[in-house]
Simulated scan of single mutants.
Amino acid sequence: MQIWACELGLSQIGVTGVDLTSAEPGLQAWLAAGFHGSMGYMASHGMKRARPAELQPGTVSVITARMDYLPQDTPPDWLARETARSLQPGEAVVSVYARGRDYHKVLRSRLQKLQERIAQAIGPFGHRVFTDSAPVMEAELATRSGLGWRGKHTLVLSREAGSMFFLGELFVDFALPETPPVSAHCGHCTACMDVCPTQAIVGPYRLDARRCISYLTIEHAGPIDEALRPLIGNRIYGCDDCQLACPWNKFAQVSPLSDWQAREGLGAGSIVQLMAWTETEFLRRTEGSAIRRIGHARWLRNLALAAGNALSMEALAASERRTLQQALMAHAAHPDPVVQEQVAWSLANQRSTPSANGKLHIPDKVDSVTKPAT
């Protein structure tokens, strides 16, 4: 089955059972702390997320898969290059995973083809494919099946591939030999926690999504908390900081698939250029991309925020300052009130900067809870 998986572009597969009861307390505590923010779907299914056989009746085994996503043209010094991009105020940074095709579609297709290969060998069987598309504890299943261990940033880590990969699952209604879990190798390292701009990793294996830049720029629909805005910098869709700081990502693998090649404007676009996209152009350029689901208004909100952060930098060239201001003014009367407010803030708070140490001051105490595997 591993050979079939590799032929289909999957990087690794594993197998685990369906008993995740030991993960339920962590899930309950994480939800009780409100760390899921406005992601109501995280709580709406109750403990079904930790019970695969309830989510898909008849499930006996879960085949897990990882798919590496570094683009084919990734240079050897990609970690240094990506890290440096957050220091370029006029550049709009999109998370590496989202620059190409929508991984949901690519990975789902490959898992469905794996299911077909298995069915050809053993006959028809009950199944269901998941690619971050239902209440599935993906990271928990991945670690139990030996794809890696849980890093302190809550992502799955592999000694052979770092964390730059997608996860997917194939639920099946027959028993398969389980692949054993692997040991953890984070040791005393806290690089991912230390680098997080908004201190979203509130403790080892504990993530407050409400402070996570990926959540704020993708999942969160309303205005972004003003205290967090300066710390988001020029990240307009997602954030890779914790992954870029992780020593294990020096082993991240380049994908053999062309699907992850960056689209025009998403690999190295400027804030001004991307703010000029009309809604029609946004929809055309993001067709088949994971970015499309946030919509044009949220896209503009994120870009306007990045523009405001760029304008707050004293070293910004006068010509670039003018073009950023003009780009913001072009959307000052946008019909979406969230975009309007963000544009106004960015124009009025051009000198706003984060605290001296670059960290957000968080006065409220955060209870220690374990982030669930999702």
Rank of each mutant, 00 (worst) to 15 (best):
T143C: 07
I218A: 00
S145M: 09
S319F: 08
P363H: 03
I236Q: 01
S44V: 13
W4V: 15
I224K: 02
S38L: 03
H36V: 08
G126I: 02
E226Y: 03
S86W: 10
L111Q: 01
R229K: 13
E91F: 03
M42C: 14
R159S: 03
R206W: 00
S368Q: 06
L170Q: 02
G203D: 00
E226D: 06
L79Q: 15
V272F: 00
A333R: 15
Y97P: 03
T280A: 08
A65V: 14
T64F: 06
A65T: 12
L87C: 13
R51H: 06
S355E: 06
L170I: 03
Q342K: 05
A80P: 07
L31Y: 08
E160P: 04
F251L: 12
H45P: 02
R321L: 06
G222H: 02
Q261P: 08
G123I: 01
D19K: 14
E7K: 15
D68T: 15
C192A: 04
Y103W: 04
W30P: 12
T154W: 04
Y97S: 05
R293P: 13
H36P: 09
L328K: 11
H45Y: 12
A310T: 05
H36Q: 15
R66V: 11
A307L: 07
T179P: 14
E140W: 08
A290Y: 05
F166P: 04
N349I: 00
A92T: 01
Y205N: 00
A373I: 09
T198G: 00
P177I: 03
I118T: 02
C239L: 04
H361C: 03
H185L: 10
A315K: 13
Q342H: 05
R150T: 11
V106M: 06
D240H: 07
V156H: 00
E54A: 02
G34Q: 11
A29C: 11
G308Q: 11
L347M: 06
K105L: 12
M1N: 12
A306N: 13
Q120G: 10
E138H: 08
V195W: 00
I13A: 15
V94I: 05
H36K: 12
R108F: 12
C196V: 00
I3V: 15
Q326I: 15
R285W: 06
S289M: 09
T198I: 01
E226P: 07
R321K: 15
